[in-house]
């Protein structure tokens, strides 16, 4: 088991390196010249330009810059936001286009910025995950048990609808309904902590995205075990039906669900570009959009990198957890 884990990690190392490399390339060839972004109007002054370039280390060859980037990543330094240099970047954002706005927070270290935002996104994601796990699995089980009845049909079709409609369509519609028509919520937008009412709508919308996957897989898993001999044995022992489902069917049926739930979790924890945009939640998705629009490359690189690393880690964990859930799986 330990050996297997180590081997898996070793196999992942090259992928991680390539991921870092690609992220770096994206930043390196990014549309906005950081020096120009910092200097603003003064960039035509060649001497100032060269000075700043040297100060940022951007005059060095590509490979050296890359190695430097990797090196500082290992040291926990993910770089500095361009906003560190006098907020020029956000001015530029205002000229650039649709999304603008000032930066939140005071720190300009990319890692600090990302992780302070991550906390907010993760709280939101946790609610969404809770909703997803409870309702997704419950509905999936119900659909399976009521297989090929109208209930099954309604659940599956309903989940297709819930998962198909993008957050930036359903979000505004729910806002209009629950703020204008049936005023349940007075103020919307922003973030008041995990236990405020404001978290409800965004969490529901975030969670409904992957609902279909969970419902489908749970349903398929349960349908598969429904007629199995061991389920009959559990019933013959006189186990109440809910325990038959919970103890004997779900665990076997859940194993495939787990695979997708891993990826879903990583997605949810990082929040959503769209939900955070619509509800104006200062999470990591909002940060990504802001820095994308303002050309703050170090930040967007950090976000992309974090997400990629998280996805890779979650995949590994899913694999290992798979073995823990299914006693038949052995690692060798």
């Amino acid at each position: 088991m330990l050996l297997y884990t180590l081997r898996r990690i070793a196999a992942l190392a090259p992928i991680v390196i390539v991921v870092v490399f690609i992220t770096f390339i994206l930043g390196y060839f990014g549309p906005i010249d950081p020096v120009r972004a910092i200097l603003g109007e003064e960039w035509e002054d060649e001497q100032r330009y060269a000075e700043t370039q040297r100060a940022l280390g951007l005059d060095r060859p590509f490979m050296i810059q890359f190695l430097d980037y990797v090196g500082s990543l290992f040291g926990g330094n993910w770089g500095q936001s361009l906003s560190a240099y006098a907020g020029v970047a956000s001015d530029r954002a205002a000229n650039q286009g649709r999304v603008g706005g000032a930066f939140f927070g005071t720190s300009t270290g990319v890692r600090q910025m990302i992780f302070s935002r991550l906390a907010i996104s993760a709280q939101l994601g946790l609610w969404a995950l809770l909703f997803l796990v409870i309702f997704g699995i419950l509905l999936g089980v119900l659909a399976a048990v009521k297989q090929n009845t109208i209930i099954d049909y309604i659940i599956v079709t309903g989940s297709i609808i819930a998962s198909s409609i993008p957050a930036y369509v359903i979000g505004p519609i729910l806002l209009i309904v629950f703020v204008l028509k049936v005023p349940v919520f007075k103020s919307v937008g922003g973030w008041d902590g995990m236990f405020s009412r404001q978290a409800i709508l965004p969490a529901l919308i975030l969670g409904s995205g992957p609902l279909l996957v969970v419902v489908r897989q749970t349903r398929a898993g349960i349908v598969e075990v429904l007629g199995k001999d061991f389920v009959r044995t559990a019933r013959a022992k006189g186990m109440p039906e809910r325990l038959v489902i919970a103890r004997h069917m779900l665990r076997t049926a859940m194993i495939p669900v787990l695979t997708s739930l891993g990826l879903i979790t990583s997605g949810l924890l990082l929040g959503s570009l769209f939900v955070e945009q619509i509800f104006n939640i200062p999470g990591i998705g909002k940060l990504a959009i802001q820095s994308l629009m303002s050309g703050d490359h170090p930040v967007i690189m950090g976000v992309v990198l974090l997400q990629a690393l998280l996805i890779i880690t979650v995949n590994l964990l899913t694999d290992l957890l798979y073995g823990a859930l299914d006693p038949r799986v052995t690692y060798d």
Partner: peptide, 20 residues
């Protein structure tokens, strides 16, 4: 590797670069 990246964000990033 492509799968490891968050696709909309990556596409957004690439499209910003591409446009330029």
């Amino acid at each position: 590797i492509t799968m490891a990246f968050p696709d909309i964000l990556l596409a957004a990033f690439i499209s910003v670069i591409f446009r330029e």
